[in-house]
């Protein structure tokens, strides 16, 4: 698979998947971002941390194309990009998985996975859905994530929180996303489901996918992330490997690094 090839190529494994330099964003009188930087290496799990109001959500909105930055630069694979909308970000290989907003609860698993990019064939020039092919491909995607779900036609609202994350990830894989942004993927989940989602993230990294993880949960971050960016008051105050960090020391960094600058 192409995903695995990318991971196997040593040159690519250390190259930059995404870089943000000096991003600024103002909402009325509120300066949400005042110069945020982010460097994410390909094939790694990179966490973005910070207290409430530090600018995490705004930064993610810029990367995922939901909003445009007022200033600063975003580049993908070393090339500057300007995303007009989320679709443009998807086209550049960046998919975002949101807590709640990403799925249509009453639609089937396969319909959710292929939402917006259905498999079709032309009959007399009319594009017609290939339902069976989509069901089969969905099963493959989910198997790739070691998921136990077998019936692709059940509505998503019958699944557990962890399973829904798996479905959302499959949609990103369907888009051939090279970078997947996960916004608080474990926020609403129990212990077992959280473990499932962390396993999903590791599985993605094994397959060469770059994961940007936004999380409030320090234990999750140190458990799966290779590196972390810490935001404070709209600025990046630290970017480092998670090696040698535990949940407590990470919390300490978030609370105190750069505090005098803010």
């Amino acid at each position: 698979m192409s995903l695995t090839d990318a991971a196997a190529a040593p040159g690519l494994a250390t190259s930059e998947a995404l870089r943000v330099r000096g991003a600024t964003k103002t909402y009325g009188a509120v300066e949400a971002l005042r110069g945020a930087d982010l460097t994410v290496r390909r094939g790694t799990v990179h966490a973005v941390c910070g207290d409430n109001g530090a600018g995490k959500s705004t930064l993610i909105k810029l990367i995922s194309g939901v909003e445009a930055p007022d200033g600063g630069e975003i580049s993908v694979d070393g090339r500057p990009v300007h995303f007009a909308d989320p679709h443009a970000a998807l086209a550049a290989g960046i998919a975002t998985i949101h807590q709640d907003l990403g799925l249509a609860p009453r639609m089937a698993i396969y319909q959710n996975i292929f939402m917006g990019s259905e498999l079709t064939r032309r009959i007399l020039g009319v594009p017609v859905l290939r339902r069976r092919a989509m069901i089969a491909r969905s099963a493959e995607f989910l198997a790739q994530l070691n998921s136990a779900i077998t019936d692709m036609t059940v509505p998503v609202d019958t699944l557990s929180g962890g399973q829904r994350q798996a479905v959302a990830i499959c949609r990103a894989l369907r888009w051939k996303a090279e970078t997947i942004i996960m916004d608080e993927p474990t926020a609403a989940l129990g212990v077992r489901e959280t473990a499932q989602v962390l396993a999903l993230i590791r599985r993605l990294r094994e397959q060469g996918v770059t994961v940007i993880l936004i999380s409030h949960n320090m234990a999750d971050v140190v458990a799966v992330a290779d590196s972390v960016t810490i935001l404070r008051a709209g600025r990046t105050v630290l970017e480092r490997a998670t090696e040698g960090l535990d949940a407590d020391s990470l919390s300490h960094l978030i609370l105190f690094v750069g505090a005098e600058a803010a």
């Binding site: 989320p86 679709h87 975002t96 949101h98 990403g102 249509a104 009453r106 939402m115 949609r171």
Partner: peptide, 15 residues
């Protein structure tokens, strides 16, 4: 259908 069922999700899926 996706637009009616979940407008925000459909929009984010590029619809």
């Amino acid at each position: 259908l996706a637009t009616g069922e979940a407008t925000e999700a459909a929009h984010r899926a590029g619809i």
